[in-house]
Amino acid sequence: MAEKKKTWKEIPIGGLILKAGNAMEYKTGGWRTFRPEKNDKKCINCLFCWMYCPDSSIKVEDGKMAGFDYDHCKGCGICAQVCPVKCIDMKKE
């Protein structure tokens, strides 16, 4: 986060944050030591990984698991643990 911090004149009053969900700009992906990788052939699209991810970092499109949001995935490994067919591996980053 090397951008210059704003002055008191430039930020909204009252401490309000006006851009909902702008935490997406903060890339917690940098926290990882291990990264999840999926074996697409084994995946049954049960979406359990999506349901249990603490960081909303499983992408779902048309009812199918469409990949990981590596910008925000913290590599906690819960998805790999809960996957019923064990198609997710945690690989060293």
Partner: peptide
């Protein structure tokens, strides 16, 4: 959204 700073593997989120 993602990008919050709860611990990796937090149960609360």
């Amino acid at each position: 959204s993602g990008g919050h700073r709860l611990c990796a593997g937090c149960g609360a989120s």
